[in-house]
């Protein structure tokens, strides 16, 4: 198979839709992630179909599945960790506030260190 590459970036200046710099790129990242979520879901759906073709009714088994207390705890821990990752900037914001970190203080530190 060739390692050749097709053109990926269309000629023609891309419009900016949002006034805030960077938001267009953030929006595209969100939709790429949404696409991958959709792909994953579809793959699971296919997997259930493949299992069914081999005589395993995974769809019904999944519906009938009763998670054990250990499973429930593991999932809850995973969800909390996931949410913490998702909101890491909020955590940082709160930490800055708690330590009295401001942009002004940050600039002052840079100047101080340059002089020290």
């Amino acid at each position: 198979m060739t390692a050749a590459r097709l053109p990926r970036d269309a000629r023609g200046r891309r419009p900016q839709f949002y006034a805030a710099q960077g938001l267009d790129q953030a929006m595209s990242m969100i939709l790429v992630l949404a696409a991958e979520l959709s792909v994953m879901r579809e793959r699971m759906d296919t997997l259930e179909g493949v299992l069914a073709a081999h005589g395993i009714d995974a769809t019904a088994a999944i519906e009938a599945h009763e998670p054990s207390p250990e499973t429930l705890a593991r999932r809850e821990a995973w969800r909390q960790a996931f949410l913490a990752r998702l909101y890491y900037l909020a955590r940082k914001d709160a930490a800055d506030a708690a330590r009295g970190e401001t942009e002004q203080a940050f600039r002052r530190t840079i100047e101080d260190i340059a002089q020290a």
Binding site: A10, P15, D24, M27, S28, L31, A35
Partner: peptide, 12 residues
């Protein structure tokens, strides 16, 4: 949001 999403859909 409409125009940005439409454009991104085209790119994807």
């Amino acid at each position: 949001h409409y125009a940005a999403t439409n454009r991104i859909a085209q790119e994807l």
